[in-house]
Design a protein around this nucleic acid. Structure first.
Lengths: 223, 223
DNA sequence: GAGAAGGCTGACCGATCGGTCAATCTTGTT
DNA sequence: AACAAGATTGACCGATCGGTCAGCCTTCTC
C-alpha cells in the first residue's frame, strides 16, 4: 500500500536487473490473474506465462499471496491517478469529462489490471479491504467535498457525490471487466475504436446531462 | 440455456423431493461460488455449505462443472425478466425507470446471483459465451429497436441504445458485484435502505436526464 | 413382505496444488 | 585467482483437489 520511488539504480546493476525481473513477472501475472482469478491461477501457470521455472517465482516473491498483493499494489497507483482534474477551481463539466476520459482510456489500455482489481473486490476484497476503507475512502470524501462545493454554488445539479463516483466507476470499468459480454452483444471479436468512442460518448452524456451540465458531441466543448 | 416448466410433480413424491434437494444445493452453492469464484469453490466447501456429504453432490450433479452450469442456468432467467417494461407503446421515462428499479432491486435481493454472473463474465464467459452471443444479443437488438423508435419519434435524445444498456447494467449491478467497495467507501457494515434509495435515485437521474427525459424525485412521477 | 429402484455415503484414487531445499551456476569484489 | 553473495533450478513434499465406487439404507411396487 506504500509508494516509493527514490534512488533509481544504475542500468545493468544487480538491483536494476532484479527490478526488471520483478516487473516482467508482474506483467505476465497480471494477464494470468485477470483470466483465471486468484485461486484459478496456479503457480505453474504463472511461471509458464513468465517463461521461468516455478521455483524462481518463489525466489522473488516467496508465496503466491505475496506475488498477488505485489501486483495489486502496483495496480492501485493507477486507480487513483485520474482524479486530479477534480479540483474546486476547475470547470465541473470539463473536470468530470477529463475524469471519464481518463477512466475509459484506462479500461481500454489496461483491461487486465482492471479485471484483477474487479476480481479482488468482487470476492469481498480480502486483501484490498483496508485500502478501500483507508486511502480510497479518504479520496472519495475529499473529491465529494469538491462536488458539494460546485453544487452549493449552483454550478451543477444536486447529485449525491459518492454515488456519482460509483456510477462513473461502474460505467467506465465495465468496458474492461465485462468486455466479454459487450463483445458478445456487439458481435465483435474485439472492440473497435468506434465502439470505445460511442461508449465514451454515452458515459459522458449520462453523467454531464445527468448533472445538469452542458454536453456537446464528444470533442466539441463549445456551447 | 433452456427453460422448462411443465408437469409440476406431486408434493412429497420422489421427483418432488429430488427438486427440493437440487434447489437446496443450488441455493447454498450460489453463496459459495459468489464468495470464492469457480476455481476457489471446492466441492468439499460446497458440500459443507449444503450440509451434505461431498459424494451426495456428485450423485445429483455428476461434476462440479455441471453443478456450476446448472446454477448459471437458473440465474439467467432472472437476468432477462426485467426488460418487459421496454415496449414501444410505453412511456420512455416510465419504462426505463421501471427497468432500473427492477435491476436495482435484483442487486439488493440477489447479490450472490449477480456476483456469480459477474465472475463468469469477468473471466471471459467460458460457459456463458454462447448464451451471451445468442439470447442476450437478440434481446438487446430487440429492445434497441424500441429505443430507436422512441428516438425517431423525438421522445428521447439520440442515445446509442446498446451502450445505454451497458451503462444501466454496470451502474445497477455495481451495488451487488462491488458492494464490498461501496460499503468500504461509505463506511457501512451493510448498505442501508437509504443507501439503496440514493443509489437508485442517482442512476435514475443520470439515465433519465441523460436521455433528455423528465426526472422528478425518486417516487414523484409528476412533471 | 419380498424384490427392485433410487438415495446416500465413507473410503479411497491419481493429479495437481503451493511451497521447500540442496546443489549449481553467475556475478561482483578484492 | 579466490571467495562471497546472489540467482537459478530440478526434484521432491504433504495437503488438497475433483471424482469414483462398492455397499448400505430407504422407499415404492406388486
Amino acid at each position: 500500500m506504500m509508494r516509493k520511488e527514490a534512488e533509481p539504480p544504475a542500468t545493468g546493476s544487480r538491483a536494476w536487473q532484479r527490478r526488471q525481473r520483478v516487473a516482467q513477472i508482474l506483467a505476465s501475472a497480471e494477464r494470468v490473474f485477470a483470466e483465471a482469478g486468484f485461486e484459478g491461477a496456479s503457480m505453474s501457470a504463472l511461471a509458464a506465462a513468465a517463461g521461468l521455472p516455478k521455483a524462481n517465482l518463489h525466489y522473488y516473491f516467496g508465496t503466491k499471496e505475496a506475488l498477488y498483493t505485489a501486483l495489486l499494489d502496483s495496480i492501485l497507483d493507477l486507480w487513483l491517478s485520474a482524479t486530479d482534474s477534480i479540483r474546486p477551481e476547475n470547470d465541473p463539466a470539463e473536470a468530470l469529462a477529463a475524469y471519464i476520459h481518463a477512466k475509459m482510456r484506462w479500461s481500454r489500455t489496461r483491461p487486465n489490471a482492471s479485471k484483477v482489481f474487479a476480481n479482488e473486490v468482487l470476492h469481498g476484497a480480502p486483501y484490498l479491504g483496508s485500502y478501500l476503507a483507508g486511502d480510497l475512502r479518504t479520496l472519495v470524501r475529499e473529491k465529494s467535498r469538491v462536488l458539494e462545493g460546485w453544487i452549493a454554488e449552483g454550478r451543477m445539479d444536486p447529485v449525491d457525490p459518492p454515488h456519482l463516483f460509483f456510477a462513473i466507476w461502474a460505467m467506465t470499468q465495465t468496458y474492461a471487466d465485462f468486455g466479454a459480454q459487450i463483445r458478445a452483444v456487439l458481435d465483435r471479436p474485439d472492440l473497435t475504436a468506434q465502439d470505445h468512442a460511442r461508449g465514451t460518448e454515452t458515459v459522458l452524456r449520462l453523467v454531464l446531462k445527468g448533472c445538469g451540465l452542458r454536453f456537446g458531441a464528444a470533442e466539441s466543448p463549445g456551447k
